[in-house]
Amino acid sequence: MKVGLFVSHGSPTILIEENKWKDLLKSIGNEIMEKYRPETVIIASPHFISWTGIHYIEVSERLECIQDYYGFPDEAYKYCYDAINDVELANEIVKESDGRIKEDDKWGLDHGAWIPLFYMFPKDKPKVVTISITENSPNSHYEIGKIIMKATEKLGRRAIFIATGSPTHRLDLFYFKITPKPTKFDTILIDLIKNEKFMEILNVKELYPKEYKEAMPEGDLNTLHMLLGYVNPKKAQVLGYEVPWPGVSMLSASFYG
């Protein structure tokens, strides 16, 4: 079965706050390990982005933790997570991409990737492959997801895909401490997932332009679009949702192909 997860990583303050989201991530991770025992986790974070139109995939043997956040309490910098790369899979993805994905060895695991991994797989760490998003279209990211799946199947890898990001990512509201509340866009996206309208998710920016603009989804939801291409889902389930901070929503959903 093809499996993908969309999980919000949230503010780095999640590391030092009491927050039920950490318990949800731990629960999801435990279930994934029990049901699927993945050898490899392929993860796409909105903080790993290429502005050249080319996707980059890391090929270093070890993916080092990057604390790419600034101005937070000192305690938030005591946490980190690194992982062993599945270099064979990364290289196979590059081969299958016909030049759309290139090798890179200058990145690692930014907080959009390592924070969820820190809570989901704290001990029995699977190997990890990380790939960048770009400013290309949702359909382009969908096609990249298909390429990743083709390479995964070719090698017979037992893998899952994790896409991270926040459906609402209004940092202006965060800094001005506006009262946390759901946005219309969050409601729309959740309904589309629950009703398994996957092609509408792919085209959500055009279908709901006003609500999309008001929410400013993190990374233009391109990590989710890549996930949809990887899984080609037939089923989906919302696992959790909350708005713990002003302007930043947290959503988790599973997708099955």
Rank of each mutant, 00 (worst) to 15 (best):
V3R: 08
H9E: 10
G10V: 05
S11I: 11
P12R: 05
I14Y: 08
L15I: 11
E17Q: 12
E18M: 09
E18P: 06
K22W: 01
K22R: 12
D23T: 11
L24E: 14
L24I: 14
I28D: 02
G29R: 04
N30V: 06
E34L: 11
R37T: 13
E39L: 05
I42F: 02
A44G: 01
A44D: 02
S45M: 00
P46H: 04
H47P: 08
H47T: 12
H47E: 08
I49L: 14
S50D: 11
S50H: 01
I54Q: 02
I54A: 07
I54Y: 06
Y56N: 10
E58Q: 13
V59P: 00
E61L: 07
L63W: 06
E64C: 03
E64K: 12
I66A: 06
Y69V: 13
G71H: 09
A76G: 02
K78S: 14
C80E: 12
Y81H: 04
I84L: 13
I84E: 14
N85L: 03
V87T: 14
E92F: 01
I93G: 04
I93Q: 02
I93H: 04
K95A: 11
K95C: 03
D98Q: 05
D98W: 00
G99I: 08
R100Q: 10
R100K: 15
K102F: 05
K102V: 13
E103Y: 00
D105H: 02
K106Q: 13
D110G: 06
H111T: 12
A113W: 05
A113N: 10
W114S: 08
W114C: 12
I115W: 00
I115S: 06
L117H: 02
M120L: 10
F121R: 05
K123I: 15
K123T: 15
K125M: 09
P126I: 07
P126W: 04
K127G: 06
K127W: 01
T130Y: 05
S132F: 04
I133F: 06
T134F: 02
P138E: 09
P138Y: 05
S140D: 15
Y142L: 02
G145N: 07
G145E: 03
M149E: 09
A151Q: 03
T152S: 14
R157A: 05
I160G: 08
P167I: 15
T168C: 09
F176H: 13
K177H: 09
K181C: 04
P182C: 13
K184R: 12
F185I: 01
D186E: 03
I188H: 01
L189P: 05
I193R: 03
E196G: 06
F198A: 03
F198V: 10
M199Q: 14
V204P: 07
E206M: 13
Y208M: 06
P209C: 13
Y212D: 11
K213W: 04
M216E: 10
G219T: 12
L227T: 10
L227S: 02
Y230H: 07
N232I: 01
P233H: 10
P233V: 15
V238I: 13
L239H: 00
Y241S: 03
V243A: 07
P244A: 08
W245F: 11
P246H: 04
P246D: 03
P246L: 03
G247T: 11
V248L: 15
L251H: 01
L251C: 08
S252P: 05
S254M: 14
G257K: 07
G257H: 04
